[in-house]
């Protein structure tokens, strides 16, 4: 097969893929909406037990990383490969920072006996059990996406270094950046729904 490069086609495919990702999370958001409607008081009580400072820190980390990835695309388009790589490295570092932060947050919660199926959670009112069930399901799925996004950005950075993704052929970097923005966007919804609901 002859190699043909279709920039607009690649972008279209990526946007459709992002849409499927939104729908994937959409199923969970739907459950959240239904259960929030049924147990507003319990969700309020659950939200009070989450650490707003840690959540806010992670929000700032992700928004900053969205900026660095966007800047890396501009850098590559201007032909500044070194700066592009530097910015991508910063993005991946921020992603890892997010995950480390998340790790401590989850560990603390599990340390307090709040984890799926735990005895402590079973004694709480049903709404709080659901709140934390959704908390683990949604932030867990989001964390998985952070991991995938960081991997994707690392692979793209390697291809930029090898000269396979260049000033004239930046489609892959742009698509990886779009994916990263989606990961960021999902978090922007998760943060208020879990941390600020109280």
């Amino acid at each position: 097969m002859s190699e043909h490069r279709d920039y607009a086609g690649g972008k279209l495919g990526m946007w459709i893929f992002l849409f499927t990702e939104i729908l994937l999370f959409g199923g969970l958001f739907l459950l959240y909406a239904a259960y929030l409607h049924r147990y507003p008081a319990d969700f309020n009580a659950g939200g009070k037990q989450l650490d707003v400072v840690l959540g806010a820190a992670n929000t700032i980390i992700l928004i900053t990383s969205s900026f660095t990835v966007a800047a890396s695309i501009t850098a590559l388009r201007l032909g500044q490969t070194a700066r592009c790589l530097w910015l991508l490295a910063a993005t991946v570092a921020l992603a890892l920072g997010f995950l480390v932060n998340k790790f401590f947050e989850w560990s603390a919660k599990i340390g307090h006996g709040i984890y799926p199926g735990s005895q402590h959670l079973l004694q709480m009112p049903p709404g709080e059990n659901l709140f934390f069930g959704l908390y683990y399901a949604m932030t867990g799925l989001h964390g998985l996406h952070v991991l995938i996004g960081a991997t994707l950005l690392s692979v793209t950075a390697a291809l930029v270094r090898k000269g396979r993704v260049t000033q004239g052929n930046f489609g892959l970097l742009e698509n990886a950046g779009l994916y990263w923005h989606l990961v960021d966007l999902v978090w922007i919804f998760l943060f208020p729904l879990f941390y600020l609901i109280a």
């Binding site: 959409g26 199923g27 969970l28 459950l31 199926g117 399901a137």
Partner: peptide, 22 residues
């Protein structure tokens, strides 16, 4: 439509393995 099936069945899996209780 398919992503909704994906997340739904992932939840069934999670319910069985992690016992979320959703």
């Amino acid at each position: 439509a398919t992503p909704i099936l994906g997340i739904t069945l992932v939840l069934v899996f999670a319910e069985r393995v992690l016992n979320l209780g959703l």
